[in-house]
Simulated scan of single mutants.
Amino acid sequence: MVNALLSGIFWGADTSLLGYYLSNYTIYFIIPLLVPLFITCIHDTVSAFLINMSIVTTGKVRPVIKDIKKAKSKYIWFGSFLGGPIGMCSYIMAVQYLGPSLTAIISSIYPAVGLFFAYIFLKERRRPYQVIALFVAIAFIIALGFVDEGQTTNSIVGIIFALVCACAWGSEAVLCSYGMKSGEISNLSAICIRQNLSMITYGMLFVLYFMFMNTGESIAFDSSFTYVGLAAIFGSVSYYCYYRALATIGPSRAMALNISYTAFSALFSYFFFDITLTLHQIILGVGIVMSGLISAYDIEK
């Protein structure tokens, strides 16, 4: 449970830093949608580099390569592709059409999707109070999104992308949890696959773009990119904790605590950037974290 909660805390810091960068610094692309994708590419590339360095410095290169070659790693690869490139691209497309708050509201159902898939494929059984607490947490997130909503553009296309994102993230948790089941593949190997696959996919996308479609982009790698680098550090720790939680307590309980990042993101924005929190945000944030804890806690264990 501790790792699952830490994944939410660190992802909240990651989200806060990336949100601040995107709202205060400008990168020019002819296609505006490529701006957040490019930032995500830089973010995941730095994260992959950090994880690869940790594997090398701790002398775990051979065990990781051995895990990657195992038959069960195909579930990690597939889950990583769904959660990384597919999930994140769908999320960014949804933001483009719906705005960030509505996208966050719809995509926040991913633990419910994961709960369903875990029940069907992993035979996970959740107690009634845990299921109720999970949906209460999602309800608090939806309420928080409406409190923060400043853009209400309605779009069927955006809703579809947000739902694809929720399905992709929920599927990622179940597939990767299954791949790490019984300790056959370590969580370090799983997160190595996840981040390197994301880095390669985004990297290929932008290599092709700059080779064939580059029309005078303005990209300044200055000190402002420190925010992206710091976000990548927090994101790397978050992914490590999240995958560790998936391997130890299962996807349902891990996701219930991971969604607490929505509350921690607002908290870090307050401490890092002095963004004012309202009483509604504080109450809803506490509700999200407490509901997640109740959903992840098993009285009989």
Rank of each mutant, 00 (worst) to 15 (best):
V64I: 14
V56I: 15
N214Q: 07
D148N: 15
L267G: 14
Y97T: 09
L230W: 02
S73Y: 02
H280T: 10
R126C: 12
S238A: 09
Y178M: 08
D44A: 00
I299Q: 08
I142H: 00
M255F: 06
G84H: 03
L98F: 12
G87C: 05
V289P: 15
L18T: 13
I120Y: 03
F78N: 02
Q281Y: 10
C165G: 02
F49D: 01
I65V: 15
P32R: 03
P251F: 00
L6K: 04
L197C: 06
E149Q: 15
G19H: 00
F121A: 07
C241M: 08
V289F: 10
A245T: 07
T226G: 14
V286S: 12
P85K: 01
F38W: 13
L230C: 04
S295F: 04
G179Y: 06
L22G: 12
A247F: 12
I160S: 07
C89P: 07
N154K: 08
I109A: 05
F273I: 03
K74G: 03
R126T: 14
I283P: 08
L37Q: 01
D67Q: 03
P100E: 00
A104S: 11
G287R: 03
I294M: 13
A118K: 06
L257S: 02
S236L: 08
L6W: 07
G229A: 00
G203F: 08
L34E: 13
H280A: 15
N187W: 04
I109D: 04
I191Q: 00
I141Y: 01
S198F: 06
L267R: 09
V289R: 07
K66F: 06
T58I: 00
V289I: 15
T15C: 15
T248Q: 13
G287H: 04
V147E: 15
I275E: 14
Y261V: 08
E172R: 00
L98C: 14
A254V: 09
R194N: 09
S7D: 05
C241T: 04
Y91N: 11
T58M: 02
N187G: 13
S101Q: 14
Y75V: 05
T40G: 08
L18R: 11
L115E: 10
Y28F: 14
K74S: 09
I283Y: 10
S23N: 10
T215C: 12
G292S: 01
S73G: 04
I282T: 10
A13C: 12
A166N: 01
E217T: 09
F212D: 13
I275W: 08
F29E: 04
V61F: 08
V174P: 14
F221L: 15
V228C: 11
V131G: 11
Y129W: 15
F271R: 00
T262Y: 13
T45D: 00
F206G: 10
I31A: 13
I141C: 04
R62F: 14
R244S: 09
M255E: 08
S47M: 12
